[in-house]
Every structure is written in structure tokens, then in C-alpha cells.
């Protein structure tokens, strides 16, 4: 591990994230605010038609905060869009990483992590502002322990998504273009992770199956610690499942990298 080099790389990526400030903030606010607005308007209509006070134990205010936090959590776990590994394979710019004195995956993960930390600061700022203006809704309880566990889940989530996305991006060693595959991953992740609909509203049997997949751990799992909606046993099992997926996907990514690098021509288009 070349720690000083990784520290410098991290600082560089951190600065780069702020290079285009208008795009950075507009992109972030556009995604977060439209998601909250459309969810709030829809759920207002649902509550109005059912006459219920809560659904799945969530009130309208709970759902509003949930839908505000979802895009923020996704930005953190998804990090820096995998830094376009497939594009670098396709156009041959992957060559430079092969001569760098650091691990390729280490380099890419640090790049992604720097972006995630910027997004985490955004999340704290926006969520803090909303809580200050609207107060804490009933389902949420912000305790130091809950926040620490949510941060731990987010941190592991960045590694999990990185491993998952790396496996798919490296299909570009054999396929010509994997852009649509990455969009597909994000779409499935958003739905099955609980981004479109809280998982508590999914049928129990389906939810039990989902908990064996990586998806809930990238979106709703960190939020459950802020909602105190998780038992100690569920938390331990969740972290264990995450660990298992990270280990499995990391081994798979290493295997794909070795196979892919053997047939990589480095010519580009």
C-alpha cells in the first residue's frame, strides 16, 4: 500500500469534485428535489385516497424525509460513477494504469471514495437544513449509535458498489460498450434497494429474498439505522451479508481483471 500517494490522489479528487461548482450543485439538487417532490405529491394522493395516517408504519412526513435521504445515500454509495473503466478499456487509456506504481483497483476506489465524501458533506448539509426547518418526523431517531452504524453501512456500501460495478464495467474487455448495462444496474438497484418504494411496503416473502442480494444494502440499509427500524440481530446479519458479497465480488473482479488484462490490446479506437 502506497499510503502517501493515495492521500495525495484523494486530495486531488476531492478538489476536482468542486471544480465545476454550478454543475455539481445543480445536478445534485435537481435529482434530490425532483425525487422528493414527485414522491411527496404521489404519497399525498395515496394518503388522501386511503384516509390512513400511516402506511407500513411511515407517515407522510417520514416518507418525505426518506425520499430526501435516498438520493443522498445513493450518491454516496455509488461514488464517482466507477470513473469510466469501460471507457478507458475501450479507448485504450487504461494503458497508463498498467504502469502506475499502485494497484489499479486501489487507485479507482480512492477516486470514488473522495467523491463519496463530498457527497456525504452535501447529504449532511441538506438533511441538516431540512431537519432544522421541518423538524424530525416520528419514524426517525438520530442517536449517536444509529448515526455511527449508518456511516459504517455507507462506508461498506461504497466498497460493495465498487466491487459490483467493477465486475460489470470490466465486461468491456470483451464487449464493445457497457454503458446500458451500468444504467440497468442503477435502475434495478434503485428499485430493489428501496429507492423507489420503501422496502417495508414490499411483500414479506419478497423482502426476505431481497435481503440476500446486495441491493438493499446500498440504499435502505443505512437508513434503517437512522429510523431505528432494525434489531441487533438484523444489523449483524446485514453486515455479514454485505461482507460476503464484498468478498465474493472482489474475488470475481480480480479474476475478471486477470483474464481481461491478458487479452487487452491497449490500442483503443
Amino acid at each position: 500500500m502506497n499510503l502517501p500517494l493515495f492521500r495525495r490522489l484523494f486530495a486531488l479528487e476531492f478538489k476536482r469534485a468542486f471544480a465545476y461548482r454550478a454543475e455539481f450543485w445543480l445536478g445534485f439538487l435537481g435529482n434530490a428535489l425532483t425525487q422528493v417532490a414527485v414522491a411527496y405529491l404521489l404519497w399525498s394522493a395515496v394518503f388522501a385516497s386511503t384516509g390512513a395516517h400511516s402506511l407500513g408504519g411511515l407517515t407522510l412526513r417520514d416518507l418525505a424525509l426518506y425520499y430526501l435521504l435516498v438520493p443522498l445515500v445513493e450518491r454516496i454509495t455509488l461514488g464517482a460513477e466507477m470513473s469510466h473503466i469501460s471507457g478507458e478499456i475501450y479507448d485504450g487509456t487504461l494503458n497508463r494504469y498498467l504502469v502506475y506504481p499502485v494497484s489499479f483497483f486501489g487507485f479507482k476506489y480512492v477516486t470514488s471514495l473522495a467523491q463519496s465524501l463530498v457527497y456525504a458533506a452535501q447529504m449532511a448539509a441538506l438533511a441538516g437544513l431540512c431537519l432544522w426547518v421541518f423538524g424530525v418526523p416520528p419514524a426517525f431517531r438520530f442517536t449517536p449509535g444509529g448515526i455511527a452504524l449508518a456511516l459504517a453501512a455507507l462506508m461498506l456500501g461504497t466498497v460493495l458498489y465498487f466491487s459490483l460495478a467493477a465486475c460489470l464495467e470490466m465486461i468491456a474487455f470483451w464487449a464493445d460498450n457497457v454503458w446500458s448495462l451500468m444504467v440497468l444496474l442503477k435502475m434495478v438497484l434503485h428499485f430493489l434497494g428501496g429507492g423507489l418504494l420503501p422496502l417495508v411496503l414490499f411483500p414479506a416473502g419478497f423482502r426476505a429474498v431481497l435481503e440476500l442480494t446486495p441491493f438493499p444494502y446500498l440504499v435502505s440499509f443505512p437508513l434503517r439505522f437512522l429510523m431505528q427500524d432494525i434489531t441487533a440481530a438484523e444489523a449483524v446479519r446485514g453486515f455479514a451479508v454485505m461482507g460476503g458479497w464484498i468478498l465474493g465480488l472482489s474475488l470475481l473482479a480480480g479474476w475478471i481483471w486477470r483474464r481481461g488484462a491478458r487479452q487487452y490490446a491497449g490500442v483503443g479506437i
Binding site: D176, V178, W179, S180, L181, M187, F191, L197
Partner: peptide, 21 residues
């Protein structure tokens, strides 16, 4: 050709998510 296939799968997933939601 591979992207051709991936794009079809991507759009089908979009339809599935919309109906599933």
C-alpha cells in the same frame, strides 16, 4: 452488437420497474 442486446435488456428493466412500482 453486445450493446444492442444490453440496451434491449435495459429498456425491458425500465418497463418492469414501472409496472412493478
Amino acid at each position: 452488437r453486445v450493446d444492442f442486446f444490453f440496451r434491449i435488456v435495459m429498456d425491458l428493466a425500465y418497463y418492469g420497474v414501472a409496472l412493478g412500482f
